[in-house]
Design a protein around this nucleic acid. Structure first.
Lengths: 151, 151
DNA sequence: GTTAATTCCATTGACGCCCATAATACCCCA
DNA sequence: TGGGGTATTATGGGCGTCAATGGAATTAAC
């Protein structure tokens, strides 16, 4: 696999641990020498965004587009970086989700989570919320493709 | 961790001591041979700015851009350096915040402080004040990112 | 001698690390 | 092509270590 694809539904145990799907792990360890993972809240959806260190690089690049001491640059820094965490995987390939992450995505400590591949990053959703979002996205994607005449 | 990221909320005891979050300590000791820390008031916010010795190097570079005896150079020197302190960590990884620091950030001696990762440096905020700033920054960052098209 | 500051020690709780189990997917070979 | 065996994944639990925090003790200062 070259991109994060497909969806996986995994269990969150009482300690807040979730197994990162093995295909995603393989992808992460290929990109970064170490198997770390950057996790943060999605800024416009009740979900979490995750990726390898290159995901963080993307955020940094975005910040460095703006000149030093520029107010918008400071806004970007304060609006993004403090909410990102670098999580390490345990020997079994699990990450531990903190309280604020669980809350943002509407996840519960013993419960379930859906991993959603999005090419260079992936998301973590509460199953019900993902179901709703997926239905909407499928419908809109279909309509868009039909409207363009492309199959 | 390569950058200061994420936020940590720690307790300030009656003596004005706060634990520097362990991930930040690891980062500090990697950059400087010794684990010291440069702390100063944020010039445009009720917060404290902290970083390793490389943070001080950045300030110095800023000053050295200006020619010797140039009035603005003197202004920078007098406006920044006198307010910076080099703090050492005690055996448990805590720093001691002086009265003027507490006052500038609106912190109280028995109370709480939020450590905010900002890449090459981090800030220390009074929890309520940070909450407000974070909400604003997140909203504006989201608007900025949406406005440019890329997620 | 009293006060302040710094160093040291003790407690609590969280987190990481290790092991065990079950289910699944994969592979090899007949 | 089917079957058995093997490896890997996902999951749960227990234990040890370290971080965070509070207080005491020792030293220094006035």
């Amino acid at each position: 696999m070259e991109f994060f694809l497909s969806t996986f539904r995994n269990r969150i145990d009482a300690k807040g641990r979730v197994s990162v799907p093995a295909p995603y792990r393989a992808l992460l360890s290929r990109r970064d020498s170490e198997s770390g993972l950057i996790l943060g809240p999605d800024i416009s959806a009740p979900a979490l965004v995750a990726g390898g260190r290159d995901y963080l690089d993307g955020v940094n690049r975005r910040i460095d587009e703006l000149p030093d001491l520029h107010p918008e640059r400071e806004m970007l820094i304060d609006g993004l970086l403090p909410f990102l965490s670098e999580l390490s995987l345990d020997q079994e390939g699990r990450i531990q989700l903190g309280a604020q992450f669980l809350e943002h995505a509407g996840l519960s400590a013993p419960g379930e989570a859906v991993f959603v591949g999005r090419r260079h990053s992936f998301q973590i959703w509460e199953p019900k919320a993902w179901e709703a979002r997926a239905a909407e996205a499928r419908a809109k994607a279909a309509a868009y493709l039909r409207g363009e005449g492309r199959s």
